[in-house]
Design a protein around this nucleic acid. Structure first.
Length: 353
DNA sequence: CAAACGTGGCA
DNA sequence: TTGCCAAGTTT
């Protein structure tokens, strides 16, 4: 399909069907950057409330830069991929210190910012500064691969260059218009991963995938990792209105966030089957619970968390137990008042600790 | 460059 | 229920 035809159809569709999103009403790079970080691997419906929360709490870049990292993480709770929150904060400080509080205006400079990769740099360069750089995200991979019949594995590194170069051909450098927004929007809401409505599509004539019935096969994405199961047996020690929390170790899921002491197994296990003596040890200490299960599903792993609430009548008597359990970096606190970001699991909502 | 990183919606 | 995967970046 000719570049001009593609562009006209895409922009024609977009004019009719674009969503009204708050970060589209501005060219201020700050709210645009914030939206792009939040929307990495995240749907608009899920990210929008967070964008609003952040804009409320930190209306300007200096507000965010001068905040405590803990406060940023607390606001990010529940969104996932928490390194984004740390990079967000680090980036804000970086722009304040290295760029005099002004976002750099070019793709190459934007790429140097923390948490800003090829996609986000292109998006900001385009949306805030009008640089005609094509964005290549999951939606663009899908749209281009289907319409033009590209069978390159989109997980491979050369795929990016191939799609980026195609984007350069398709984008109109003279009057770039809303090309990038339109291609992402179309991929997100019309040329969907499953069951796209091809018969009424504006690209119905000329689409390679429709002509060959390859909609479900494209884009090609080779997946390799197999699913692993992890079983977390949480011990929630409770004393009056306080619980024992700890900082999660670096190098694992939820790094630096807070949760409770846990025993991990690779299979379902009851306390007496745990690889430590913990289960037996706790039998004498009113171990209750075991009825709250939190299932966490990822593309390549399944997390199963079960919670055991352990009542601690006297903190002093507990010290010996804590030593035996080899518990480290733990502190007592009221979850509501903790000044630290706490990993909110369903358990907490259920129990109102 | 493969692997790791969260969560929630959908069929 | 299970699998797929979404406006990606970092290591």
């Amino acid at each position: 399909m000719d570049a001009k035809i593609f562009r006209e159809r895409l922009l024609g569709w977009y004019q009719e069907h674009q969503r009204d999103l708050p970060w589209r009403h501005t060219r201020d790079p700050y709210p645009i950057w914030l939206s792009e970080i939040i929307l990495q691997q995240t749907r608009v419906a899920q990210g929008l409330p967070y964008w609003e929360k952040f804009m409320q709490a930190f209306p300007t870049l200096p507000d965010l830069a001068s905040a405590e990292e803990q406060q940023v993480l607390r606001l990010w709770q529940g969104l996932g991929y928490y390194s984004r929150a740390r990079n967000l904060h680090a980036c804000a400080k970086q722009v304040m210190e290295e760029y005099n509080g002004q976002f750099p205006r070019t793709y190459d400079e934007l790429l140097k910012l923390k948490g800003v990769g090829k996609y986000t740099a292109a998006a900001i360069a385009y949306f805030a500064f009008g640089e005609a750089v094509p964005v290549v995200d999951g939606n663009v991979y899908r749209l281009f691969s289907r319409v033009f019949g590209i069978e390159t594995d989109i997980a491979s590194s050369k795929a990016f260059n191939e799609f980026f170069n195609l984007g350069l051909e398709l984008i109109d450098t003279q009057r770039a218009g809303a090309f990038n927004q339109a291609s992402m929007e179309f991929g997100a809401t019309y040329c969907k991963p499953q069951n796209p409505p091809c018969l009424t599509c504006t690209f119905a004539s000329g689409c390679h995938a429709l002509a060959t019935g390859q909609q479900a096969k494209l884009p090609v994405k080779i997946k390799k990792t197999k699913v692993k199961d992890r079983y977390f047996h949480y011990l929630v020690f409770v004393h009056a209105d306080q619980v024992l929390v700890r900082t999660r170790p670096v190098g694992d899921i939820w790094t630096g966030l807070h949760d409770f002491h846990l025993v991990e197994t690779t299979k379902p296990a009851t306390p007496d089957e745990w690889p430590t003596d913990l289960g037996k040890l706790l039998m004498g200490h009113s171990l209750k619970g075991g009825d709250v299960e939190y299932k966490h599903l990822l593309s390549h792993r399944r997390l199963h968390a079960r919670f055991y609430e352990v009542n601690v009548p006297e903190k002093d008597a507990f010290e010996g137990l804590a030593t035996q359990l080899e518990m480290q970096a733990v502190t007592w606190g009221n979850l509501e008042n903790l000044a630290k970001p706490v990993l909110i699991l369903r358990f907490l909502n259920d129990r109102e600790i």
